[in-house]
């Protein structure tokens, strides 16, 4: 089993601290969701992990070996990102051939099946692809290279709903046929909420959350009822946000509930990752800024 470790990584651009002492461990065979708002440092982190840029301090290791300038370790990762690092004049077939040469092998059968499914003509030149097909082609590459860690930075950018649906299904198919680590960076949390096994929330360059989704959700509690009763019940608990609907209040609690007595008027349930994310990344009480 391989392990990808990010330890104490910090990075700043000018006076802006993009990453601050980030430490995460990625195990093999899991699907991680790397969540964060725009500018939270997700892409920078992924770029540092794949040695595209350098951290100011800290290091990235695979199986306790530093990945910096290390072909053997860098070859275990593939980062599909928004920036295009292929030359516009190359045909897709040519890029696949070159990619295969660099990684040592390539799942041509899968690539062919996916190209047919997404109706992508492999004789096209890379520069002629639309935004959606640009993403699709890079996703095909990501699924077909023989790596242990597949890093996807905003993978469904520009894909229509139908293609997104197809992509998530193919991702799971590829994952079950060949279990390896996926790290999916996205702000479309709802789409990946059930897909990921572990969630990492990055906010302003810091890790806010790094846990299995199941454990995280078990700690989410929405407490609904008359305002007075709800506030009394949640007193002393970690209330991260609330909603008011007339006299009815919902307090969102993140953490363990102690064995305090639940009043008859108050109801408990869990809430989802999307809500948790919004509350965790907008620190002040009750302020709700939905993006997108």
């Amino acid at each position: 089993m391989s392990m990808l470790e990010v330890s104490h990584v910090s990075k700043s651009f000018g006076s802006k601290n993009v990453l601050q002492d980030v430490t995460i461990t990625f195990d093999e065979g899991k699907i991680y969701g790397l969540l964060g708002r725009n500018g939270a440092g997700k892409s920078t982190l992924l770029n540092i992990m794949t040695n595209r840029t350098f951290a100011d301090s800290g290091e990235v290791k695979i199986d306790s070996e530093n990945i910096n300038d290390n072909d053997a370790k860098l070859g275990l990762m593939f980062l599909m990102s928004e920036v295009n690092l292929y030359s516009n004049g190359s045909t897709l077939d040519q890029i696949i051939a070159d990619t295969e040469m660099m990684y040592g092998s390539f799942d041509h059968q899968l690539a062919k099946r996916l190209a047919t499914k997404f109706e992508l003509d492999m004789a096209t030149k890379f520069g002629k692809l639309s935004t959606g097909y640009n993403s699709i082609f890079k996703l095909i590459l990501a699924l077909c290279v023989p790596v242990k860690f597949v890093l996807l930075d905003e993978p469904v950018l520009g894909l229509d709903a139908n293609h997104r649906e197809m992509f998530y299904s193919e991702l799971i198919d590829s994952f079950t046929n060949n279990p390896r680590t996926f790290i999916i960076s996205t702000h479309l949390i709802e789409e990946v909420a059930n897909l990921i096994s572990d969630v990492i929330v990055l906010d302003e360059g810091r890790i806010m959350l790094d846990q299995p989704v199941e454990e995280v959700l078990a700690k989410t509690h929405s407490v609904v009822g008359p305002q007075r009763d709800v506030d009394a019940y949640t007193k002393g608990l970690n209330v991260i946000g609330h909603d008011d609907m007339g006299n009815i209040r919902v307090n969102y609690v993140y953490g363990e509930l102690d064995d305090r007595r639940l009043p008859d008027t108050v109801q408990l349930s869990n809430f989802d990752l999307q809500k948790l994310f919004i509350f965790l990344t907008n620190q002040f009480e009750g302020s709700r800024h939905y993006e997108n």
Binding site: Y168, I172, D173
Partner: peptide, 14 residues
């Protein structure tokens, strides 16, 4: 498991 997983985009382990 895989069919359900693929159809509803749920992690196979779940």
């Amino acid at each position: 498991t895989n069919e359900i997983s693929k159809e509803f985009h749920i992690n196979p382990a779940t």
